[in-house]
Structures are given as C-alpha cells and as structure tokens.
Write a protein that binds this DNA or RNA. Sequence first.
DNA 1: TAAATAGCTTGCGAAATGCAAGTGATTCAC
DNA 2: GTGAATCACTTGCATTTCGCAAGCTATTTA
Lengths: 137, 137
Amino acid sequence: MTAISDKYDSGCPMAYALDIFGDRWSLLVIRDMAFKGACRYGDFLSGGEGISTNILAQRLKQLEAAELISKERDPENGRSFVYRLTDKGRDLAPVLVEIVLWSGRHNMAAHALTGTLDKLRADPAGSAAAIREGRVP
Amino acid sequence: MTAISDKYDSGCPMAYALDIFGDRWSLLVIRDMAFKGACRYGDFLSGGEGISTNILAQRLKQLEAAELISKERDPENGRSFVYRLTDKGRDLAPVLVEIVLWSGRHNMAAHALTGTLDKLRADPAGSAAAIREGRVP
DNA sequence: TAAATAGCTTGCGAAATGCAAGTGATTCAC
DNA sequence: GTGAATCACTTGCATTTCGCAAGCTATTTA
C-alpha cells in the first residue's frame, strides 16, 4: 500500500496526493511538524484540534509508509521517539503555504498561527524554502 | 455550518481549509471543474475515481455551502444544473497546482493528467492564473 | 403519451472514527 | 532497588460515515 490505500489510484496526480493526505488529520500532523517543530507523539496529541490517540498512531504509520515522515528513537530519552519530515514531506512546503494563504484570504475568523501567516504573506517563497530546509518559518 | 462541520475549528488556517476540503472527494470534484471543465452532476460521477452518487450529492451541497461552487439551472436543458467554481473556489488554483506539481515530483507512476502536468511545470503561475480566470489550463 | 435522461434520495451492510480504558517499556525519585 | 511517573501506543466498543444498489421526480425527446 502507499498510504491509506491504492484502491482509488487512477494515475491522476491529484488522486495520488489525496490517497496519501486526503483526510482530516494527515496534513494537520504535517502542519505541526512544519510550522511548529513538533516531533513527538505527545506534541501531535496536544496539537490543538484533538486527534484521538488511535487515529494518530494509524496516521503516523501511514505517513511513514508513504515516506513523508521518518521515525527514530530519541537518543536523549529511550522511551520516546522522534518523528521528522523526510525530503518528500518537506517538499510539501509550497502546498502548505498555499493552503494557509488561501485560508488567510477567505477566513476572516482566523486567529491561530497568525504570526506565521504574516510571514507567509510577506515572503511565501522564503517560507516554503525554510520548511524545505527543516526550519520553522 | 461551514462545510462538513465547524466542530474542529481551532482558528488555524490549515484547520479551516481542511474543514472545507479535507476529505477524499472534495478536491477531486474541484479538480474536475478546474482542470477538466466539468460542470454537471454526471461529469463528476464519471470523473475517473468512481465517487458514489450519494456522496457526490453531499459534497456538492457542502462545497456550495462553503461558497466554493455555485449551482444554477442549465438554461439549455431544464432537467440539468450547472455547477461552477466561485471566486473563492477558483482562488484555490495555486493549491491545486502545487499539489499536482508535488505529485509529479514524487509519483513516478503518474499517467493521467500528464499533458496538464507538463503545462503546470512549464508555467505554474500562468496555469494558476488560467484557473483563476475560469479557463482550463 | 411512453420512454429516456438528469439529478438526486433512500436503505442497508461495511468500514472508519472517536472515546475511554488498558498495556508495556523506559526512566526518575527515593 | 523498588514504586511511581512518563511516553507511546493498543484494544474494545458505540457512533458516524461510506459505498453500493435501487428507487424516485422532473424534464425532455420520440
């Protein structure tokens, strides 16, 4: 399997992408990693939207299987793991940036991540580059 | 309601967007409109991935409620309706383009929409502009 | 006026989701 | 060295959503 499954794969690039992150939670996990520097299970659990623990575990496995994230033991705490975006995952930066910019244009009620939104607006390409390099914009 | 529901809205721009199109089918419907010029119920049903009719009807309602698409009677065929992207819907163009480009970079098996993919690669901004203007890239 | 077309709606079994409680492997405090 | 705490899950179960098939309504064509 690629991620959730290949059962819908029609060869369309959009369908390929949605097969991997076309659900409620995957992009929120990736957002936590890209914009907030989250890297541990507990970080995602307390990410703000209240993902439940079984779904989180499932999504992390799927994202790892799709090679968007990697999982390693935490060298400083043996009972913890560190999740990181892979090159493929960081390469989603322009997608994330455009989604945030779109929401910024159309959701007047937005109040979270606004500091980041200002930076993205001021320099979308630079922000995407930052994510791609593993930095938090 | 905004779309599927507001129950997850945390004020984060990403969450706002995913609340509207964070599911398996919404972006595929929008893809059919943006890249293939689809505008009728039957067009979406035969869009390639096999969405089922009840889910399609539900998604069209949600997308209309979120003001990404509009619905009108077809002036040339009274038993048909014409769905169109609104300004807000067409404004998703950069998101769609970046998703397709990302898939193009990472899915070597892609075979559908490849003519479009080449155009997007050659001129991403121009392709996004075409969608924004209601043309098919 | 009968048949075909377009766009749904309904019913129902299967799958995914959400919540709560429980497990197992470290690690820390004493 | 032992008990408590932490971290990362897993399991069970009720609820929700999905997917398939059949049916319904309005309009149009023959």
